[in-house]
Write a protein that binds this DNA or RNA. Structure first.
Length: 303
DNA sequence: CGCATTTGACCTGCGC
DNA sequence: GCGCAGGTCAAATGCG
């Protein structure tokens, strides 16, 4: 399988500060502040200037906090990833001990097979061919999407273009915010599930975990010729803009596959790829009208 | 009336 | 074996 990783490390999160462009945010802001002050020589606008500087400082602080948050998230992701690699290595060493999957999941699979038994036998053949490997590692693609929302917004809705039907909600131990469970309802047999929960650390961030792959095109993107999975970027790393803000997608697909347990895409770690990602992020931000409008508003002191 | 959402009950895996 | 926690089911409820 072509599972790919977004190898995010803390350095990348610092790259988000645009350090890679040779310009530190602070420096840029300071230059900007002096520019503003120099450009406005009227003594009557002093108060306005002070106000502007204060607001810019606020933005700097906010940027700092966001960078720290991304850093923490990346750190945790890397920790989890290394743990998962350790676990998968263990499994390989032990001759791929059968995973203790829940009966419900196997029932889901059997239901799928029942549904498809008359029309499609390929799925059962596929399972037979990979009998020795845990189904989870083969069939379940897991990716995580971080969606910035307003903290006051209590709805656990992540607009990704697909149609979701909520089938459950649960409060988990590690997070006081409830977790909502969704199934893709666009196609009746689409196996994709989605869990949405607010981040315990930052209530303004929704964490959507996608499991599985859509067996149909994205309803909203089908017109543009994009194939399945592009809407949530399953199986790939992506940064994209949305109405509510930029989405950061992390693919948590396990390294274990039918072929091997090694990372199949080392290029992602390369500086070139990270540079590409940075450029994509910068491009997304500058192209995002919401962001540019907010920036303009901040400059104009209208926040 | 049909569909989506809510929510308590139930099921299953896991650790002790 | 028991209890806990995560995940799912399905009846009740709400809404257009």
């Amino acid at each position: 399988m072509d599972s790919t990783y977004l190898e995010l490390d803390t350095s990348l999160s610092f790259d988000l500060n645009l350090n890679s462009y040779g310009v530190t945010p602070k420096k840029e802001y300071k230059e900007f502040q002096t520019e503003i002050i120099n450009s406005k020589k009227k003594p009557s606008v002093n108060e306005e200037e002070i106000l502007l500087v204060e607001k810019l400082n606020q933005v700097i602080e906010e940027n700092k906090k966001l960078s720290e948050l991304v850093g923490v998230m990346c750190e945790k992701y890397n920790n989890l990833k290394s743990q998962m690699e350790l676990l998968s290595n263990k499994n390989n060493d032990q001759g791929l001990v059968a995973s203790k999957k829940r009966k419900a999941e196997s029932m889901d699979n059997s239901n799928n097979n029942v549904n498809q038994v008359n029309t499609d036998s390929s799925s059962t053949e596929e399972e037979d061919s990979c009998n020795k490997i845990p189904k989870e590692a083969i069939k379940t693609k897991i990716s995580r999407v971080f969606v910035p929302t307003e903290a006051s917004d209590t709805t656990l809705v992540v607009k990704d273009g697909y149609q979701w039907r909520k089938y459950g909600q649960k409060v988990t131990r590690d997070n006081p915010c409830p977790r909502a469970y969704f199934r893709c309802s666009f196609a009746p047999r689409c196996p994709v599930k989605k869990k949405v929960q607010r981040s315990a650390e930052d209530r303004s961030v929704l964490v959507a975990t996608y499991e599985g792959e859509h067996n149909h095109p994205n309803p909203t993107q089908a017109k543009t010729g994009l194939g399945p999975n592009h809407g949530v970027a399953l199986g790939s790393a992506s940064i994209k803009s949305s109405v509510s803000g930029p989405l950061v997608t992390l693919d948590l697909t396990q390294p274990g596959s039918c072929n091997d347990g090694k990372n199949s895409s080392p290029d992602i770690k390369s500086p070139a790829f990270q540079q590409f990602m940075i450029e994509q992020m910068a491009s997304s931000l500058t192209k995002d009208p919401t962001f540019t409008a907010a920036l303009a508003a901040a400059i104009a002191g209208k926040w």
